[in-house]
Design a protein around this nucleic acid. Structure first.
Lengths: 145, 145
DNA sequence: GTTCCAATTGGAT
DNA sequence: GATCCAATTGGAA
């Protein structure tokens, strides 16, 4: 398998860069955007669809999560793998979402929007809860069919 | 009881006004700061202690709540009077904090910091939860004494 | 001692 | 259908 890697800073598209330049990586002529130090990547094509100016940070979080995780992962994992303090010994502990990818998404969004990490974490928590409910409803629907 | 009321816009102190002018009201030579349209007031002396520049909005929320409500009210009321969705039929519904005063605090903080109301609401929710726990701990301590 | 945080939930939007 | 929200909790910061 032949591949060449070059890392450099570049402006891909004005629409994606209202707040910073991007670090990109090229693999076999394919351009990927690096989200953070964990080297989480997003295909250029996908990243260019992000209009950070108009998008709320919560939506950016959800779209990045959807790019880097499957619906199943989002529905079954948590950020911390900790039990809910309100349901200790009641609800099963969920495994942790890959902290590298989550960390890169966290930092990327926090920097893009210049907001606190804890706000991004909150958005992730809600997104995961919604993914879980979506899956649950889907199963319930299939059962009644 | 003799009193004169004049309402006008005035700068009280630079430290309180990095983001706006204030509306104040004078009652018997005492100056009160109006927080919002609900006419919730804070004594000038107290308001002048607020250094909004340095204070986080969450702290401003807590201090205003403490000025306008008793610890008992904060410990026993909620913003919405709704049950927790996670404990429906399990936990008793708490009465609603006076929505006029809460509304004025909400708007005042949101405007001062130019942040979303929902962020302020979140801070209020946390503050009420903490007030409840503080009261609970105090009672437990008294019981063991 | 005070403040902040994330997991869970059903409903509202 | 997707997104947002507040009440509850114990522990972390």
């Amino acid at each position: 398998m032949k591949f060449a890697i070059k890392s450099f800073r570049i402006s891909i598209s004005p629409i994606c860069n209202f707040n910073s330049t991007l670090t990109v990586i090229i693999i076999d002529s394919e351009l990927w955007v690096l989200l953070g130090a964990g080297c989480t990547t997003v295909p250029r094509r996908e990243y260019e669809k992000f209009d950070f100016r108009r998008m709320k940070y919560t939506i950016a979080v959800r779209r990045l999560l959807n790019l880097k995780f499957t619906k199943e992962e989002l529905a079954t994992h948590s950020q911390t793998a900790k039990e809910s303090p309100a349901f200790i010994g009641v609800k099963a502990r969920k495994p942790q979402l890959d902290p590298v990818r989550v960390g890169d998404i966290r930092l990327h969004v926090a920097q893009k929007y210049n907001i606190d990490i804890s706000l991004v974490n909150k958005a992730i928590t809600v997104a995961l809860a919604d993914a879980r409910k979506t899956k649950k409803r889907k199963i319930e629907k299939e059962d009644t069919d």
